[in-house]
């Protein structure tokens, strides 16, 4: 059986509520408009140190990319961005409720994503969804979708990898819709299907003679 192609959608980084409501798990999304990177450095500076966020959010952008680009700042102050790839998002979950409330972010873009509990608890009430990068590592394709690097903020304070990069997207993608406005999680749906086969794969193997603290023997669990 040959695989089915997913549906493709073009989406603004300041999307309407209707556009977000229309997204279905597994849709492939291409983005247009401004998107900013923010990860632990930016969250700590904006939320814990209460520094002023150097952008108008969400009017300029409602899209937060969990990413550090492969990029450089040239001696003349201009920027070069090569490849762009997301970093694992679940590590940032503790800052996201406050970040969304403060900035009105509607699209959280990254790798891995959060659990359906997170989605139902603070994504859905904020009208937000999670988009996953593809691969992970379609960095060159995503790099092609960067029309311009508009600014880099807090580079002095946080370094290139943690700085807040502002990029102008032109059909930037592909991304995959990994949560919807029902708070359902694409990866959990897939895990449930895979779990049906786990017992068969493990048949004949045996637990290690020496156990470790906190060990779960349930392979349908996620350890994140």
């Amino acid at each position: 059986m040959s695989p089915r192609k997913p549906r493709e959608v073009r989406l603004s980084t300041t999307p309407s509520a209707e556009a977000i409501a229309d997204l279905r798990l597994g849709d492939v999304v291409y983005l247009d408009g401004l998107m900013y990177t923010a990860r632990e450095g930016v969250y700590m500076r904006a939320l814990e140190d209460q520094a002023n966020i150097p952008m108008e959010l969400p009017s300029q952008s409602a899209a937060n990319f969990h990413c550090s680009p492969a990029a450089r700042i040239n001696p003349d102050g201009s920027f070069d961005m090569g490849a762009v790839t997301a970093t694992a998002s679940f590590r940032f979950a503790k800052w996201l409720p406050e970040w969304m409330a403060k900035t009105g972010a509607k699209l959280i873009v990254g790798k891995g994503g959060m659990t359906s509990r997170d989605y139902k608890e603070y994504f859905v009430p904020n009208g937000a969804v999670y988009l996953s990068t593809v691969g992970y590592g379609t960095g060159a394709l995503l790099g092609r979708g960067v029309e311009a690097v508009e600014a880099v903020h807090w580079n002095e304070e946080l370094g290139l990898a943690q700085a807040m990069w502002v990029i102008r997207c032109n059909r930037m993608g592909p991304f995959i819709v990994a949560s919807d406005l029902n708070g359902d999680c694409l990866f959990e749906r897939e895990n449930a299907k895979i779990a049906e086969n786990v017992a068969r794969v493990y048949e004949g193997t045996k637990p290690a003679v020496l156990k470790r603290y906190g060990e779960s023997d349930d392979r349908t669990d996620e350890v994140i």
């Binding site: 550090s68 090569g82 790839t85 691969g135 590592g137 060159a140 394709l141 092609r144």
Partner: peptide, 17 residues
Amino acid sequence: ENYEAAKEDRRAMCGDT
């Protein structure tokens, strides 16, 4: 497609290099 794009553009395959 990404590998092709990287070679054509001479840009890194992945942003996490």
